[in-house]
Design a protein around this nucleic acid. Structure first.
Ligand SMILES: [Zn+2]
Ligand SMILES: [Zn+2]
Ligand SMILES: [Zn+2]
Ligand SMILES: [Zn+2]
Lengths: 145, 145
DNA sequence: GTAAACCTTGGAGTTTAATCTAAGGTCAAG
DNA sequence: CTTGACCTTAGATTAAACTCCAAGGTTTAC
């Protein structure tokens, strides 16, 4: 498949301005130009854009995303020094984000549950209190997994 | 515990300017003022700030964080209409973020693994390719869980 | 052949989230 | 009783990430 800029923007729900901006920022270059000068994009570019948008949605800056995209294993070369340590640092960052999100998810879960059945004590009412409660439960209900 | 603005900022690794800015944005008010006019914060405020910083780190805007903080169950009142639907929408958002992050984590995992043992085919080299590969594996290795 | 709907560039403007500056008050140490 | 490290306010400035605009070229549709 190939897309013109507007088609790709529509397909992945962003603006054409954003695509031109990402090009300037060296995040996503067009796969080529048509004879008339229009940019075109292939499925590879589409996947890259999808990745950029996902990474952005979970709190990576464009600079960090650029770093993620630069992580490449080159089987012959000396990738294990540089690439692996960068990938590992990013992996730690991602794992930390996953843990924070898990906490927020469990707190929201509790709030939604409480709104249905009233299983939370009546005095607990905010997301902060749900987080506190959850922390207590993790401490007392699972003394040692 | 109570903290002056500088102490709280140092404890949670942000700037005093950020704390004053969050106050203006109605995200975090000081627990009170000392006779000399200085702000002070208690552990409750500290927890709220910790939540704000965590939520920010996983890609919530300050506006979204304000909405998260406003989610409150009031056991007597009509919370199940408004609160529950807001909490559910946020929960869906959080789950979506979790899925994106999981994908990125698995791709980074594969890259780190490949850098150690060379378990990835030598032609696979970028985070995008790791994502592709992972998608294929999920399709073929688990035809029906 | 001309209007509508695309696309091009360069550059200006906006929003979000801080971050900094200026002018000054508070307080403990020496 | 002054120096230094805090704190106060209001307002200006910055950086990141878009978003919009002007002036114009290209394609399809009637
Ligand atoms: Zn309810
Ligand atoms: Zn309440
Ligand atoms: Zn390697
Ligand atoms: Zn390669």
């Amino acid at each position: 498949m190939t897309y013109r800029i507007g088609e790709l923007a529509q397909a992945l729900d962003c603006s054409v301005d954003t695509l031109r901006f990402y090009e300037k920022q060296d995040l996503l270059k067009a796969s080529g130009r048509s004879p008339n000068g229009y940019r075109f994009y292939n499925d590879n570019a589409r996947r890259q854009l999808a990745f950029i948008l996902r990474a952005k949605a979970v709190g990576f800056s464009l600079e960090e995303i650029r770093e993620l995209l630069e992580i490449r294993i080159h089987p012959a070369a000396n990738c294990c020094e540089d690439v692996k340590s960068i990938a590992q640092r990013k992996l730690e960052l991602v794992n930390a984000k996953l843990q924070e999100l898990e906490k927020i998810r469990r707190a929201l879960d509790q709030i939604v549950d409480a709104c249905v059945g009233g299983s939370l004590p009546a005095t607990e009412c905010s997301i902060l209190e749900a987080l506190e409660l959850e922390a207590l439960e993790l401490e007392t209900e699972e003394p040692e997994a």
